[in-house]
């Protein structure tokens, strides 16, 4: 995972590059929450281009970050998920609330 905060746009960019399952999402959850709370951005972008696997634990992970972001008035954006991840997002109800680009 890599991150970048763009001060001028008050935007947090998080680039995920690991497989997201129940094992990895525990760490990801605390790290991503840490950055969201630290910067309190207007927008948080989760770049998933380099994520080649995600299961339902990842849905829970994204839903949890969405809830935190929403509480803080921050928009969560999921960027470039692959076809399989997109399919999972569409199966769950979170795709109705979260912007996927």
């Amino acid at each position: 995972m890599k991150y970048k905060y763009i001060d001028i746009e008050n935007k947090l960019l998080i680039e995920l590059n690991e497989e997201i399952d129940i094992d990895t999402c525990t760490t990801l959850r605390s790290v991503v929450d840490g950055y969201i709370l630290k910067y309190n951005p207007r927008e948080c972008e989760l770049d998933m281009e380099k994520v080649n696997f995600m299961d339902s634990s990842g849905i829970g992970f994204i839903a949890g970050r969405y809830n935190l972001a929403k509480m803080l008035g921050c928009d969560l954006v999921i960027k470039k998920p692959n076809a399989s991840i997109r399919k999972l997002l569409e199966m769950s109800s979170i795709s109705k609330n979260i912007k996927v680009v």
């Binding site: 339902s56 849905i59 829970g60 839903a63 999972l88 199966m91 769950s92 109800s93």
Partner: peptide
């Protein structure tokens, strides 16, 4: 679908549906 016995752990409850 969407049922989870552990909602506090942010599980999506989608395992069997998937």
């Amino acid at each position: 679908p969407a049922y989870t016995s552990k909602p506090e752990l942010e599980h999506a409850g989608m395992g069997f549906t998937i």
